[in-house]
Amino acid sequence: MSKRDYYEVLGVGKTAAADEIKKAYRKVAMQYHPDRNPGDKTAEEKFKEAAEAYEVLSDADKKAQYDRFGHAGVSGNGRGNGGYGGGMNMDDIFSQFGDIFGEDVFGSFFNGGARGGGGRGSQRARGTRGSNLRIKLKLTYEEIAKGVTKNIKVKKYVGCTTCNGSGAKDSGSVQTCGTCGGSGQVRKVTSTFLGQMQTVTTCPNCNGEGSTITAKCGSCKGEGRVYGEETVTIDIPAGVQEGMQLNISGRGNAGERGGAPGDLIILVEEEPHKELQREGLNVVFDLHLSFPEAAFGANVEVPTIDGRAKIKIPAGTQSGKIFRLKGKGFPAVNSYEKGDQLVHVNIWTPQELTSEEKSMLEKLAKSPNFQPNPDKNQKSFFDKVREMFQ
């Protein structure tokens, strides 16, 4: 099933500013929020779809890639089923975007929400989000043309398995924050000439986590993560280009103390081909023909990204002639368009000649048919050449 356009999901245009995108996301997310639609799977999927769209359109780099390449530019084989949003669970979404819904909005409207005692909307994000990782991935022409699945080893911060990312020595080492009472927020009421004003700020004692650690995990020293290695499976779509970035959500560095992980950003590099060159969607090959082959015509084989192909060279082919092999180029990432292969003909001039060869060429040089004249019938010239080489 194809994904809907992200701008359509949020109901904004491509020129929408960051504030407009944020406002639109909040509106859609509030409409389909699980606390407002308990047990409604359709609403839950639309809620995740909106989070997926916002995750891309709220990030300038991801938005630029999406505008240029569509879904292929911002997809990969990330967590779960391999994209944004759809591979995120509810905790991921609220951890990353919970602040957009406002402070305790669902706790006040729904008296505790689905989780009780504060609802989803008021739940504070745990820990610190991990940083993004950038890696370069070299691809051959053949891999680019057909698409490929790569398994790569990435050195990065991963969640600590000893404490399951909590950073605590054991469950008894995690205590409710005494400053905020576990809410992660501190409320302050001040009197002004307009009356009493209430402000809500992040708890300075627990940094909004709602809990504190009395004894740190010995393996990760309280960070909830350790430096290690992870094998990541990446689906590369056909038609990617040099310099293109693929963003894989949640496969970057693990966050501290259970925080959301960062993203893995793949920078595509093309391995040079020993015979072919790329020009956009087209592939270019320089074909060198001997003088007799160009004069008499010939059947030759040329390399393509799909293997080798035979082409017929007509008699009298001139240097600089371009033959086009339809559909033998690269596919476009975000459409059904496909490039061609262009075969540039070059006539090879011998650099060393025997005395007999020089004598034959000297005779030819005296013939008027040997002089360049595109408008003249050169049939008699070809006949003479055939006789000389028979």
Rank of each mutant, 00 (worst) to 15 (best):
E362G: 07
L133Q: 05
I152R: 04
D170A: 01
T140G: 02
A168Q: 02
N253I: 04
V345A: 04
G130W: 03
A50V: 01
A295N: 09
L137N: 01
G119H: 02
R324T: 15
T176D: 05
Q378M: 14
A114V: 00
L287A: 10
V345H: 01
K216N: 13
M244G: 00
E209Q: 15
K379V: 15
R324Y: 02
E269V: 00
G329S: 03
N37E: 12
N373D: 15
K169D: 06
V28M: 12
V186E: 01
Y141D: 11
E49I: 02
R126V: 07
F370C: 14
G13E: 13
G127K: 07
N377Q: 09
H288K: 12
E45W: 10
D5G: 14
T161N: 02
P368S: 14
P372Y: 05
Y7A: 13
V28L: 09
M388E: 07
L264H: 08
D92I: 11
Y32M: 10
Y336M: 05
V200T: 15
S249K: 02
G224N: 09
K384W: 00
V56M: 04
R225K: 15
I311F: 02
H288E: 11
A365G: 01
N89E: 05
S171P: 04
Y157T: 02
T149E: 14
L342M: 11
G181F: 04
E387N: 06
C206N: 09
L364M: 15
G98L: 09
T231D: 09
G172H: 02
G228C: 08
D35R: 12
K46D: 03
L10W: 11
V345G: 03
D104L: 03
G255T: 05
G327F: 04
C160F: 07
Y25I: 11
G182E: 06
K321Q: 11
P292D: 10
C180D: 08
Y7K: 14
V200E: 03
I135E: 01
A215T: 12
G262R: 11
F323L: 07
R36S: 12
P34L: 12
I347H: 08
N377R: 11
I265F: 06
G228S: 10
R225G: 10
G262S: 09
I234L: 14
N334W: 00
V302K: 00
E256S: 14
N132S: 10
E337T: 04
K338L: 01
G70I: 07
D170L: 00
F381Y: 13
I100F: 07
S75I: 00
I322M: 08
A260G: 03
G262F: 07
D92F: 13
K326H: 03
E271T: 10
G159K: 12
E49G: 09
E337Q: 10
G127L: 05
V240T: 11
G327V: 08
E44W: 11
Q390A: 12
M88A: 14
N369D: 13
T199G: 01
D286V: 08
R187G: 03
A17I: 13
N205I: 09
S122L: 08
D340H: 02
A24I: 14
I248H: 06
A332D: 13
A254D: 07
A72S: 10
S75D: 08
Y32N: 15
E256Q: 12
N369K: 13
